[in-house]
Design a protein around this nucleic acid. Structure first.
Lengths: 497, 386
DNA sequence: GGGTTTTGGGG
């Protein structure tokens, strides 16, 4: 009858307290087979006072939030093969759904939805009609329980290595200490998973009536939902990421997303924001405000909507171009782009690169890293000395100053004194080198080659402008660096402004 | 060098605090037209006292004079019971402080612009209009960025001053193929200041002595009000000086505060009342938890505005504390949940240090804050939140 | 329940 049971919570979340935990995900009462009978959302008896069990696909969710001293809530929108399309005429392919409200005494007892399209199993929920809609209630603090199954191969957290891997029939997270699974459930999970994949492939799921276009955000009275592509994730500080979003309307907005709360977000992905408000106090850039119950979720891989938006929305850097015309801009500008071949290279902070690289086993075993920083100072301060004559045999460099022709090749020999969020408050600055003697970083200055800057006024002027651009406030460099002899050299990185 | 705010900033706090940072922390350089009385809503009064301008909440820091004057003029009103009330801050100033942002949530990147209150009064009858849910100014995207800009300037200035002699690694030195070469060779100290934290700032750090809300609580409810109720009177406050050990020793010295330079601007703060909170057509609002015979607000746009003689000493709140007289009960104005919360808060703090700002409280602080009253004006209503 | 805590940079 039951299989795949685990002793520990399968969730990766850390249970801070150890108070009397809620009951098992699947309270075991009878010893006989089908203890739980799963009903379709549409079949659940509205008149029944008995708790019911079901499997459903999540298409929206709040983040679990505290409402008072003793309660936490998580509200979801769910669908299944019996309930997913509005039947009324003129509603097009607008989605229909039931709501599921889970109540708990602890934050840890509620499900965190990072991705739409995943499957949730509920035991012992009650149902009623609320505002003409089917609403299921699950009191996790009493006897209800939940379990989340990933529709894609890996859950959102498993994809970033933040959660233990599980097989197809094991939930990546569940309430309670234990999880039970009846033999007949395997088919149910596989069926609804397949249905979910097809459903997201054929429909938008998040139909137009379920979100607001960003170019209409300012006119909204209260909060609204958004569907947009993440153009950029800027690490504002140790705890916060600033997302640069753009939706189908073409409007760009920024919003702050706590790293701990939304660890699964990645540049280029399409997301849905459940509840945001227009910030009337931001005058330098468009900003969306989030609340503690706000959520930012991605879509399962088969999502038609996400796929369309990923391909349709592009970054024209219009905001940045305008920002660079101001004396001081509050919009972060990432000046560079790294070669596509490093797309999968994980990023590391300067703290890791300079304070942990020799002590951490993982870090010390690697020599190529992706990293972001801002340049506080550039040496030589005299731009004309950025390019030197280099003798490959003696490894000696010579200033090109003076009329005498120098032998050897012209190379860039520049040192950037940089800093980032992980080192924001300390008294250090870190050396990252742009030395092109071996070819590394040769294209950094976007086409400006290493030439005698004492003579080539044109090149010198461009580099002086880049010097200013690099060291100006709110300018950032996203680079790939290679460690050689304890030094980090920029490579495969190019300024795009 | 500062930004061009083409659009008028709607939040008074954001505009004020931003200007302070953009002017190097010098309150004297902040636009005088912004130095007007501040009318704000008291979002919370204990264990944290927070006021809002309709958009953001910040912590007001009361000087001893402000507290003394308040208690003198409003003998039956507890500062700690001002939750959900409106107050008008007639005399104030701003100052920059270096703090530990890991402990002070109304700060960012170890910097805090503090609103020093020299004189304020309650507008017990006034209700402000509903506004957006107030959020922490120090968590605002643009404001955080403004503070980063401030630090960026300080760092670059420090670097220009301390790293005059350049030192670029020789190519011969970096091409050895030495796998064991350590990366710490790339670490460059920005300034010669002691400690690991960057501290080479040029701004004049504020040092106005203020009174912690916990002390005001004890003053108003009695030194053992808390312990009597099960909590501990000995509470510790987070924040203030940077570094715990440092904070303790520092405050222990109890340095005196020079009352002169103190608030250059304090004196300028007068003019007419600023319309901090947007007023709106009034509509009688009724609050559930505070049974107050709230006067229904006049129909006009501005409203109930009881212009209680602000500067006069005679004024007695038409409608004192809920109980009609100064309350000493710690449970006043609190729901069971809130009560439980503050008891827990005290419980958690006990055993900690006693000082907060790193300054001594006792001595009079800076500036002879002359309470200038603006005319309380545009009143409005604020529907009670649940 | 389409919402507002403090853990006061998951809540």
């Amino acid at each position: 009858m039951s299989s795949a049971a685990k002793n520990q919570r399968s969730t990766s979340r850390v249970t801070k307290k150890k108070t009397t935990g809620p009951k098992d995900a699947a309270p075991k009462k009878a010893e006989k087979g089908s203890k739980y009978e799963y009903v379709e959302l549409t079949k659940a008896q509205l008149t029944s006072v008995t708790a019911q069990h079901f499997y459903a696909v999540v298409i929206d969710a709040t983040f679990p939030y505290k409402t008072n001293q003793e309660r936490y809530i998580c509200s979801l929108k769910i669908v299944d093969p019996s309930l997913y399309l509005k039947k009324e005429k003129g509603t097009g392919d607008n989605s229909d759904y039931a709501t599921l409200v889970l109540y708990a005494k602890r934050f840890e007892d509620l499900p965190i939805i990072h991705r739409l399209g995943d499957i949730i199993r509920i035991h012992r929920a009650t149902i009623r009609l609320y505002n003409g809609q089917r609403q299921f209630n699950a009191n996790i603090f009493y006897s209800s329980s939940w379990a989340l199954f990933s529709t894609d191969k890996k859950s959102a957290l498993q994809e970033i290595g933040g959660q233990e891997a599980t097989s197809d029939l094991v939930p990546f997270s569940h309430s309670g200490k234990n999880f039970t699974f009846q033999k007949n459930e395997a088919g149910i999970v596989q069926n609804i998973r397949k249905w979910a994949q097809q459903y997201f492939t054929q429909y938008s799921v998040i139909s137009n009536d379920m979100f607001t276009a960003l170019n209409k955000a300012q006119a909204q009275k209260g909060d609204f939902d958004v569907v947009a592509k993440i153009l950029q994730i800027h690490e504002l500080d140790e705890y916060t990421n600033e997302l640069k979003l753009k939706d189908a309307s073409g409007q760009v907005f920024y919003t702050l997303a706590l790293k701990l709360k939304f660890p699964h977000l990645r540049t280029g992905e399409v997301v849905r924001i459940r509840s945001a408000t227009y910030d009337e106090t931001s005058t330098q850039k468009k900003v969306l405000l989030l609340s503690h119950y706000s959520n930012i979720v991605t879509f399962i891989s088969t999502s038609k909507l996400a796929k369309e938006l990923r391909g349709k929305i592009t970054d024209d850097r219009a905001v940045e171009k305008a920002a660079l015309k101001q004396d001081v801009s509050l919009s972060a500008v990432v000046l560079t782009e790294v070669d596509k071949k490093h797309a999968g290279l994980p990023a590391h902070s300067l703290h890791d690169l300079f304070h942990n690289a020799d002590s951490d086993k993982e870090l010390s075993s690697k020599d190529t890293f992706r990293t972001q920083f801002y340049v506080t100072k550039i040496e030589p301060s005299d731009v004309k000395e950025w390019v030197k004559a280099y003798d490959r045999k003696t490894k000696k460099v010579t200033s090109l100053k003076g009329s005498a022709a120098k032998g050897g090749d012209n190379i860039f020999q520049v040192s950037f004194l940089v800093k980032d969020a992980s080192t924001q408050l300390n008294n250090n600055t870190y050396r990252v080198l742009l030395y092109t003697h071996d070819g590394l970083g040769a294209n950094f200055f976007n086409g400006v080659k290493a030439d005698n800057l004492h003579k080539n006024a044109d090149a010198r002027k461009k580099l002086e402008e880049y010097s200013e651009l690099l060291t100006r406030f709110n300018s950032y460099v996203d680079a790939v660096v290679e460690r050689r002899n304890g030094f980090y050299f920029i490579k495969d990185t190019r300024i795009v402004y | 060098m500062s930004k061009s705010q083409q659009v008028q900033q709607q939040s008074a706090f954001k505009q004020l605090y931003t200007e302070l940072f953009n002017n190097g922390g010098d309150f004297g350089k902040v636009s005088n037209n912004l130095k007007k009385p501040l009318k704000c809503y008291v979002k919370e009064s204990y264990p944290h006292f927070l006021v809002t301008d309709g958009y953001f909440f910040v912590t007001p820091y009361f000087t001893k004079e402000a507290v003394t004057e308040f208690h003198s003029k409003f003998p039956n009103v507890n500062i700690v019971d001002l939750h959900d009330k409106v107050i008008v801050i007639n005399n104030w100033s701003l100052e920059l402080r270096r703090v530990n942002s890991a402990e002070v949530f109304t700060s960012y990147a170890n910097l805090e612009a503090r609103l020093i209150v020299h004189s304020f009064k309650p507008n017990l009858q006034e209700r402000l209009n509903p506004t957006r849910y107030p959020v922490n100014l120090y968590r605002d995207d643009e404001f955080k960025t403004t503070i980063q800009h401030f630090r960026h300037q300080a760092l670059q200035q420090s670097l220009a001053k301390n790293l005059k002699q350049e030192n670029i690694p020789d190519i011969a030195k970096v091409t050895g193929g030495d796998k064991k070469a350590k990366v710490d060779a790339g670490i460059v100290r920005a300034s010669t200041s002691k400690g690991d934290e960057f501290s080479d700032f040029s701004f004049k750090e504020g040092n106005t002595a203020t009174i912690r809300i916990q002390d005001i609580f004890v003053q108003e409810k009695g030194k053992d009000a808390l312990s009597k109720l099960g909590g501990e009177g000995d509470v510790k406050v987070k924040g203030g000086a940077r570094g715990k050990a440092k904070a303790a020793s520092k405050s222990a010295k109890g340095k005196k505060v020079s009352a002169k330079k103190a608030d250059v601007a304090a004196a300028d703060v007068r003019k007419s009342v600023d319309k901090i909170v947007k007023y709106t057509p009034n509509k009688p609002s009724s609050r559930k938890e505070t049974p107050q015979k709230s006067q229904s607000v006049p129909a006009a746009g501005k409203s109930s505005a009881k212009k209680t003689a602000t500067g006069s000493k005679k004024t007695l709140p038409a409608n004192p504390s809920p109980s009609g007289k100064k309350s000493t009960k710690t449970t006043d104005q609190m729901t069971m949940a809130q009560f439980k919360r503050y008891l827990e808060w005290h419980e958690k703090k006990k055993g900690g240090k006693t000082s907060s700002g790193g300054k001594v409280l006792g001595k009079r602080s800076a500036g002879k804050a002359s309470a200038t009253s603006g005319k309380a004006s545009k009143a409005s209503k604020r529907s009670a939140k649940k």
